[in-house]
Structure formats: C-alpha cells, structure tokens
C-alpha cells in the first residue's frame, strides 16, 4: 500500500485536503487513525463533515501528530497521512517541537510526498534558505515521488500565473506542481491521477 504523506507549513490546508480527498473518492464516513508524538495511537470513525469541523482549524497547529485514512484511490488502496505543520525555526512549546520531530522522521516512510503550499502566500521575493518550504522543495523536489500542491487557489486571482510563480519561487519543475483547492476540490483529479501513475 502506498503511503502518501501530506507535508507543509501550518494552516496550508493539509487536514482539509486529507478529508476532502477522502470525500472526493466517494467516502461519507471515514476511519481516522491518530498517533501522537509519544507513539500513542487510536482510531475513530467519523462522518467527514463532522471531522472537518473538529480537525480543521483557522489557527495554526490544529494537528499535532500523525493522522491517516486508508482509502481506495480507484485502482489501489492508499494510506493518506496528514502531519504536523512544519516551520523553519524552533518553536515553543516542547510538545510542538516533538510533534514536528515526529513528522520529520516520518517522512522517510513516504512512498509519495505531497508538499502543500498556500497559494495566498506565494513569495514575490526570494525566500531565505532555511525557510521550510525552500528546504523541502530543494531536498525532495528532484525526486520522482515528490509533488507540490499549491492549495487555496479559490482565493487567488485566476489571471495570476500561480504555477509559474511556484515553480520559480521553489525552483521545481512546473510539471511537478498541481494547483488545487482543498475547499472546492479543484485539481483533485490531478492528484489522484498522479498518485495512481506513481509506481512502487
């Protein structure tokens, strides 16, 4: 089973993407598995709409740990994993740093890395080299199993060349970028096609 891992800064829409992708694939309820940074785990069945209300937050760090759903992506079962939002600097409190460490270390289990960027905060200036998105795209951007998802395109001007902007800002090939909206499910077919096209 492919392990598809959603990573990115806090509040970029990882959790909403997890839940709405499950919905897009025809689920109404889901079995959501959690694991906190100490390794304690549990699973719970949710109605997707209820889960959204519980788990997607306006404030950053609504997710502290790993949470995943197994689902049928058409021609295969996949495991879609939502993670703790990462930022480049050390943050308070310790529990949050620990959760970030858990996510960083979990990356190695990814058969596919889905790196989410917020379309509304695409930089116009070059970012510092220790920006987490710069680091992630620099290290993984060349790998076959990496894709960049620019999320929240419902919020930006259609005329904007989001794809080009993203490719330039993070120096990744534009065929490695998919523009999506976790909210209105734009671009979801592209994500699923990408997942199914990946071997391994």
């Amino acid at each position: 089973m492919k392990t598809c891992v959603l990573i990115g800064k806090p509040n970029v829409g990882k959790t909403l993407l997890l839940l709405n992708l499950a919905k897009f694939l025809g689920n109404k309820t889901i079995k959501l598995h959690f694991m906190d940074a100490d390794g304690n785990s549990m699973a719970k069945v949710y109605d997707i709409e209820v889960a959204k209300r519980y788990l997607c937050g306006r404030q950053p760090y609504s997710t502290m740990g790993l949470q995943w759903i197994r689902m049928n992506a058409g021609c295969q079962y996949i495991e879609l994993v939502d993670t703790t939002g990462l930022i480049g600097d050390a943050v308070e409190p310790t529990t949050l740093r620990k959760a970030m460490a858990q996510t960083i270390s979990f990356i190695k289990n990814a058969s596919l890395l889905l790196h989410i960027i917020d379309a509304t905060s695409l930089p116009s200036q070059p970012l510092p080299v220790d920006d987490i998105d710069v680091v992630l795209s620099h290290i993984f951007g060349g790998n076959d199993n990496y894709v960049m998802l620019i999320n929240k395109i419902d919020l930006v001007d259609r005329a904007d060349d989001i794809l080009g902007k993203g490719a330039k800002a993070f120096n990744v090939n534009s065929d490695k970028i998919i523009c999506v909206s976790a909210l209105n499910k734009a671009g979801f077919k592209g994500i699923i096609d990408y997942i199914n096209a990946q071997k391994g």
Partner: peptide, 13 residues
C-alpha cells in the same frame, strides 16, 4: 529538535 538545539529545517537537511 525537541530540545530546540537545531531547527526543523536543519534536521531535514
């Protein structure tokens, strides 16, 4: 990372 001796970016690198 937990002890804030290095940043997440450094750890990933």
């Amino acid at each position: 990372v937990e002890r804030a001796e290095i940043t997440p970016s450094e750890a990933i690198r």
